[in-house]
Amino acid sequence: MENTSQLLAGRKVLVTGAARGLGLAFAAAIAAAGAKVAMADILQDALADSVASLRRQGLDVNGFALDMADPVSIDTCAAAATGWLDGLDGLVNNAAITNSGGRASGQIDIALWDKVMDVNVRGTWLMTNACLPALRASGRGAIVNLASDTPLWGAPNLLAYVASKGAIIAMTRSLAREEGAHDITVNAIAPGLTKVEATEYVPAQRYQTYQDGRALQRLQVPEDVTGAVLFALSGLSRFVTGQTLAVNGGFVMN
């Protein structure tokens, strides 16, 4: 990656779902760009290990418990994180679950559908609400919502997840209009299928389909997405809001 060591100097950022995978990559890149980073996740053991690893690299990070299906946990996490950070300039809404992979619409039961929506959609909404007072006080607040390219091309046999990420894109646009008066930017990043722990269940053929369909025909890794998140959090994007940036090597082109 290009040298971004001062891009987010002095910023205070909360990253959800930061114990591993894309969230961990985001937290590491944001902290390496000079920010103080609160890392939140339900996977407490993995989170503790990741925080310790980043601290050994000299990065200013701390971990906070978070269950995105529990409104009380969300409020508690937001309060603790903003307290430790002493404010908040950026929120990366990354935490999400898939759970419906490989199932056609008629094979998804109501409980599974509701769980995906509770975590991915309601959780993102509630976390954003919990953080808005601190973001408004910042004067340079930025919200980055992790969507997916799946609703951009209509990925099959993944309907609950696709619907939830389509909702994230719609929420991003509406929130951008609501929060523009407070000088808060709200943008969505829509990665393609990325090789991380959370996608270990994905069949090899699905990876190959993505790779063959990309303009840049290779496997996507977390580091391919971090630059877009840094841009959306930084002063470089202060007049960019309500947008969805597909980061997938050209599998989907807007």
Rank of each mutant, 00 (worst) to 15 (best):
Ala48Phe: 01
Leu135Thr: 00
Thr194Tyr: 10
Leu132Pro: 04
Ala246Thr: 12
Ala40Ile: 07
Ala18Gly: 13
Ala155Glu: 15
Leu8Tyr: 09
Arg177Glu: 14
Gly63Ser: 06
Leu158Cys: 07
Tyr201Ala: 12
Gln205Gly: 08
His182Met: 03
Ala228Ile: 03
Asp75Thr: 09
Gly23Thr: 14
Glu223Met: 04
Met117Ile: 15
Gln44Leu: 11
Met127Val: 01
Thr124Gln: 15
Leu14Trp: 09
Val121Leu: 10
Leu8Asp: 13
Gly235Met: 15
Gly10Leu: 01
Val162Glu: 03
Ala95Ile: 09
Phe26His: 10
Tyr207Ile: 01
Gly123Tyr: 05
Gly34Thr: 06
Ser174Glu: 13
Glu200Ala: 15
Arg238Gly: 11
Asp149Cys: 01
Leu59Met: 11
Ala95Arg: 11
Ala69Gly: 08
Ala104Phe: 13
Leu24Asp: 07
Leu230Gly: 07
Ala33Gln: 02
Phe64Ala: 08
Met127Asp: 02
Phe64Asn: 09
Ala81Val: 13
Lys195Met: 12
Lys115His: 06
Thr209Phe: 01
Trp84Gly: 04
Ser164Cys: 12
Thr185His: 07
Ala142Ser: 08
Trp125Val: 08
Gln6Cys: 12
Ile110Tyr: 05
Ala190Ser: 13
Thr98Ile: 09
Asp41Gln: 03
Asp118Ile: 10
Arg55Asn: 08
Lys36Val: 09
Gly87Cys: 11
